[in-house]
Simulated scan of single mutants.
Amino acid sequence: MFSPFDLPIPISILITDELSSPADFALHQYLISHIKEKKNSLQIVLSVSEGLTRWQSISAKSNIDLPKQIAAETFHLIDVTSALESDKVASGSTPPSPFHALYEQIVSLFEKNKAAGRDSDALVILDDISSLEWVGYSASDLCRLCRALRALCLKNQATLIIRHHLVQTSGEMDPLFRHLHALCMYHLDVQPLTSGRSGAVSGQIALHPGPNAFSTLPSLVKVRSRSAALQYRLTDGNAVFFERGSSRGVL
């Protein structure tokens, strides 16, 4: 059975969703899977919309003790909004590059991780970039941030995951999406059902190759077009995937 989480590492993944079918579950599952598989590696969550309590609650349902990971300095959650506001206060004005201090903080975490002799194969999650654009950060600044994060992750053999809420205007995708798509190796596409809401089905999910997909091992990855998208149902702490017209199949 297809699983959107059976991907080689390190890679860059763009996750898109819509407000009626949020991809929170995918972000949490990537983190949980990474902690279980890479017990001595680094995880960094750059969170815009969810606090630490939420990440801890979801992880605990899969027997992941995030406070323990925090104490071991292998898991770090950075409240992006608070960090950016603190940078403005510290500088006394809006800095010319609004994400410079945030980026340097991430660089520092990688350096400390390397100095501690921990495993590579780190994970960086940016959730969610759309909200930063909605509160007034320019698309060009956000694009530069994502390019810098991708270069940093490539240098450190880390996986980068970026979540972006899709907003269509006049039938065209927004410019930020086009830029993010150009950076990614794979695009995880989470959508609502075309037929509307259902009590048994939460939405559908597809996996597309990105422009850089063939720099990985494509034979190991089974992509899914929208026409062949799997449906999913959210449970208390997980997601169940199944083919259209069937309720069978568990991730």
Rank of each mutant, 00 (worst) to 15 (best):
E18T: 13
T235C: 01
L193E: 05
N156M: 04
I44D: 01
K36H: 14
R144A: 12
F242S: 13
S198I: 08
P98V: 07
R178K: 11
Y186P: 03
H187I: 04
F177N: 03
T94V: 14
I9F: 04
E172F: 06
D128L: 06
S33G: 14
V89G: 01
Q69S: 09
H179D: 10
P175D: 07
P22Y: 01
A239Q: 07
K114I: 15
D174C: 09
E18H: 11
P218C: 00
L188I: 06
Q43F: 08
V221G: 00
D119E: 12
V240D: 10
S219L: 13
D121P: 04
I205C: 04
Y30T: 11
S59D: 06
S130P: 05
I32D: 06
H164C: 05
C143F: 14
I205L: 14
L46Q: 00
C143G: 15
S86A: 15
Q231C: 12
A72C: 08
I162G: 00
A213C: 08
I125G: 01
L123T: 02
G92Y: 14
A206N: 01
T94E: 15
P96W: 08
T216P: 02
K112T: 15
F75I: 09
C143W: 12
A206V: 06
D79T: 09
I64E: 05
Y137M: 03
I58D: 08
D79S: 10
R224Q: 14
P67Y: 08
D121T: 12
A101W: 00
I129R: 03
L145T: 00
F214N: 14
A60W: 02
A213H: 08
V240P: 03
H164W: 05
V48E: 03
K39D: 04
R233D: 09
H164V: 02
L46H: 00
G51S: 04
E172V: 10
V80G: 02
S47P: 02
L234K: 10
P218V: 00
I32L: 05
I129H: 02
D128I: 05
Q105D: 13
G136I: 07
V250L: 11
S20Y: 10
I13F: 03
K68G: 07
V190Y: 00
G171F: 05
V201F: 02
P4F: 07
D127M: 11
L176M: 06
F242M: 07
A182S: 15
L207W: 05
V80C: 01
F99T: 04
T235I: 08
M173Q: 04
T81D: 04
I161P: 03
W134V: 12
A90E: 13
D128E: 11
A182V: 11
A71H: 11
K222E: 15
K112C: 12
A228W: 09
L154T: 05
F177S: 04
P10S: 01
A101Q: 11
R248F: 07
E37D: 13
T159L: 01
L220Y: 00
I9T: 13
